[in-house]
Amino acid sequence: MRLLDKLLSEGGDAGQHRLAFLALLVALGTVLYLMESFFVAVIPLPGAKLGLANIVTVLALLTFGVRDGLIVAFLRVLIGSFFSGLFLSPGFFLGLAGALVSTITMALLLRCKGVFSMTGVSVGGAVGHNIGQLLMASLLLQSSAVIYYVPVLLLLAIPTGMLTGYILNGILSTREVPP
């Protein structure tokens, strides 16, 4: 976190500052996104992911706001798909829908100041991610059969969301985030 501290505390042009920090978040998000795909084999359910990349989205939302949060989420999925070779595949669209819906959900939850802790925000983000994914899946498959998957993914969102929330609490307790 010392690098992040330095970037945020040092003076200089605010625009460059923002650009550098966002680029860092996108890079971190991409790496987490790719790292996660190694764990997919452990959880035998399609679409079930830890959602570690959501951590980065929350950081972007906290430091810069909804617009930059959406940009980071979009770029993370885009660049991640370049690396995994899944650009424009069904998986790419699922990830994109999930990331965007989850970012909007988390932005709304963060807006209710003091009501939700990072745990609540993360669980909300995980639920949003899964719902977005399922909506896109039903759109791609032209079928409503994916609805059978809703309870499973809703329940899965709780442990994965709580895990990312726990990590976020750890990150945020190391320093103050500028409002």
């Binding site: 939850l109 669980v123 059978y148 309870p151």
Partner: peptide, 24 residues
């Protein structure tokens, strides 16, 4: 965890159970 968190968690669990029952 704040009260809002707990409420959200309960809501998610309820939504999961309800959708499960509806599907069955």
């Amino acid at each position: 965890m704040t009260r809002g968190d707990k409420l959200l968690l309960i809501l998610v669990v309820l939504a999961a159970i309800c959708s499960g029952i509806a599907i069955l």
